[in-house]
Amino acid sequence: MPLLDIKNLTLEIDTAGGRVKALDKVNLTIDESEIRALVGESGSGKSLIVKSIVGAINDSWTLTADRLNWKGSDLLAMSKEQRRKITKDDIAVIFQNPVSSLDPTASLGEQLEENIPDHLVGKGWFWQRQEKRKQIVSRQLHKVGIKNHELCLSSFPHQISDDVCQKFMIAMALVSEPKLLIADEPTMGMETTIKSQILKLLSRLNQNRNLSILFVSHDLLAISSMCHSMTVLYCGQTVESGRMTNLRKRPLHPYTKALLDSAPSFSKDLLPKSNLSALDGTIPTLQHLPIGCRLGPRCPRAQKECVKIPAPRHIHNHYYSCHFPLHRPLK
């Protein structure tokens, strides 16, 4: 049974121009002890998926899904309290903007201690528990590579630099020992050395503690080095998902191919000074979404049928939503 199973997740947002489907029938599964990448351009709704999973969406948005299951139990059908308990104990999120995701008026120490679950602290008098909390907190900070933990804990979010803040967010997510870690662009704005440290830390946690990770990013190099499987998102629609190796070897959706081609480190036979390939146009805004397959106007293989939403098809574990996938010749 997959850890998290999302089927046909649709998120509708009311805008001035009417109701818009920011997420349109998104499918995503995360198996136990798997690192799954969620890839897509900025504005394709990656962060919205993250927010939908943990239930941190605005009240005015409407969320519907055929399945939003956590270990087989439906998150949407259960009571608020039950769902909160699951998000508290089992799911942890590293948010995209670390500074704005931290309370500006509380010291970092307070915020980190707040996240320690009671069972890790154990029983005892309040000073013993406080002592234990302090230990856990400093150990956790050392793990993510913050050496001067005392200074870090006593300072406020606006006082520390962005990459330390990012590391702190990671520490905060890991301190509750979750089963699923959702990392929303965890290495954004970091130096390369620190970035590889963080990525190593995440893969180590995955191997040692069976932590499943949903790795949201558009850094294809990092993804291909650590992720087991990948889901590609375009404009709120899942276009393709499958094992990392399959996707890299033989992408079936034109968008996935364009995405992989656009990363020069993946194409070995790239001649010097040759043009990098990219799709024409830009990702459409939420107000001007094309009907049917949203890639339609930019797709090199688009035909008449593309104005209808393609049904998801699959070859073994390799899912794709396209009328004219790459392995079938165009008529």
Binding site: K51, G55, A56, I86, P104, E114
Partner: peptide
Amino acid sequence: GSEYIKAATARGLNRYQVILRHGIRN
């Protein structure tokens, strides 16, 4: 409506904890 309140909700605090610990002071 700010990010850190959403983040606190996502961490699994209930509404009262969110308001008491992060809402009022801010």
